[in-house]
Design a protein around this nucleic acid. Structure first.
Lengths: 130, 130
DNA sequence: TTTGGAAAACGAAAAGCTTAGTATTTACTC
DNA sequence: GAGTAAATACTAAGCTTTTCGTTTTCCAAA
């Protein structure tokens, strides 16, 4: 039986994917330039991470002139769903309501955010109902 | 300047904390016994993990007879909030509404779960409003 | 009070993640 | 085509996490 792969990104990989998702596609240099100033990675480190991401099939690359341009193969929202599912399973007994409970407990949540959340749930309930 | 600690548990640490949270407190043996059958860890591995958890201040221990009984120092709901915050920051641009959007997108979500979620949000909105 | 069995303490091997150095390739310029 | 500047490929060092073996400690029962 094959060993279960986690299908989840490591911390650094996620850091890079976030930039690629934001810009659609980009080179090693593009991504590095977008990272915070205090994050100084060697160019080669960035290249390694993108190479690994390609190995893991999270991105593809095509050659453009002499440089590689990387493109995500997985949409951000899909990955978001996957991550949430994982967290829900591991920490919330697979009970989404508990997860939302913790979320809305948060003192710092604005009324506006709460309103948006409610609208989302309502819309979904209506679509299901009829 | 001190390096930022993540304050988050590793995969295995979380596995153990979940059992401690479920039973309130317990020994190495107690926790190991609760893990799934296909998860066979040596006794010493379990002991190591709990020792590390104590080092990181997620649990305390007291001696009872010859064995150590471990107790969480951090409530599960606090840790849930912390984890969600972390995920939200790293993957949802710190926008809780987006997070909920992904959650309610989930096809497999039952109507009941959706209702519970809505009730939670409503209650919170009412409490705030007056 | 000796001893046998279970647990704790310690240390360290194994595996995985992060970072980067060196060597090689590439495309462009003269 | 030789020089050169920038990018890629390859490799590995240094951490952290995961796992467990060995030694030490402790209790309980003979």
């Amino acid at each position: 039986m094959k060993k279960k792969k986690s299908e989840l990104l490591t911390e650094v990989e996620l850091e890079f994917m976030n930039e690629l998702w934001a810009i659609g596609e980009g080179t090693v240099r593009d991504v590095l330039d977008r990272l915070p100033d205090d994050r100084d990675l060697a160019y080669t480190s960035g290249a390694t991470i993108l190479r690994i991401l390609e190995q893991k099939d999270f991105v593809t690359s095509r050659k453009e002139g002499k440089t590689l341009v990387y493109t995500p193969t997985l949409a951000k929202d899909i990955y978001q769903t996957r991550s949430l599912k994982d967290l829900s399973m591991k920490l919330f007994d697979d009970t989404p309501a508990t997860l939302v409970a913790r979320l809305v407990d948060d003192e710092t949540l604005t009324e506006e955010a709460l309103g948006q959340i409610r609208a989302l749930v309502d819309r979904r309930l209506k679509n299901d109902g009829g």
